[in-house]
Computed example of a mutant assay.
Amino acid sequence: MSSIDQDGMLVDPRVQWQRFAHIEHGTLDAVHGIVVHQTDAPSAQATFNPTTAAATGPIS
């Protein structure tokens, strides 16, 4: 069974954490569902690269 830890992260052996704090908008009182977003990217890292770049700013 899944649970939520003290930081609000889902704890389940099937879930890999990839947290981007800069896109969070505050606390949630309750979770009513989980959205699974699938892409045709060649890897998980390729999917998360734009989010990581947004946090660090443009590469000069």
Rank of each mutant, 00 (worst) to 15 (best):
Met1Asp: 06
Ser3Met: 10
Ser3Ala: 13
Gln6Ala: 12
Gln6Pro: 00
Met9His: 10
Met9Arg: 15
Leu10Ala: 12
Leu10Cys: 09
Pro13Val: 01
Pro13Trp: 03
Pro13Cys: 04
Arg14Ile: 02
Arg14Ser: 08
Val15Asn: 02
Val15Lys: 07
Gln16Asp: 06
Gln16Pro: 00
Gln16Leu: 08
Trp17Ser: 08
Gln18Leu: 12
Arg19Gln: 06
Phe20Val: 08
Ala21Cys: 03
Ala21Val: 05
Ala21Glu: 07
Ala21Arg: 11
His22Asp: 02
Ile23Asp: 09
Ile23Gln: 14
Glu24Lys: 13
His25Cys: 12
Gly26Cys: 02
Gly26Trp: 04
Gly26Tyr: 04
Gly26Asn: 05
Leu28Thr: 05
Leu28Met: 13
Asp29Ala: 13
Val31Pro: 00
His32Ile: 09
His32Val: 04
His32Trp: 02
Gly33Ile: 01
Val36Cys: 02
Gln38Asp: 03
Thr39Ser: 14
Pro42Gln: 12
Ser43Trp: 02
Ala44Ile: 08
Gln45Ala: 14
Ala46Met: 11
Ala46Glu: 12
Thr47Ala: 15
Phe48Lys: 03
Pro50Ser: 11
Thr51Gln: 13
Thr51Lys: 14
Thr51Asn: 12
Thr52Trp: 11
Thr52Lys: 14
Thr52Pro: 00
Ala53Lys: 14
Ala54Trp: 07
Ala55Asp: 01
Thr56Lys: 15
Thr56Ile: 04
Gly57Asp: 03
Ser60Arg: 15
Ser60Glu: 13
Ser60Met: 14
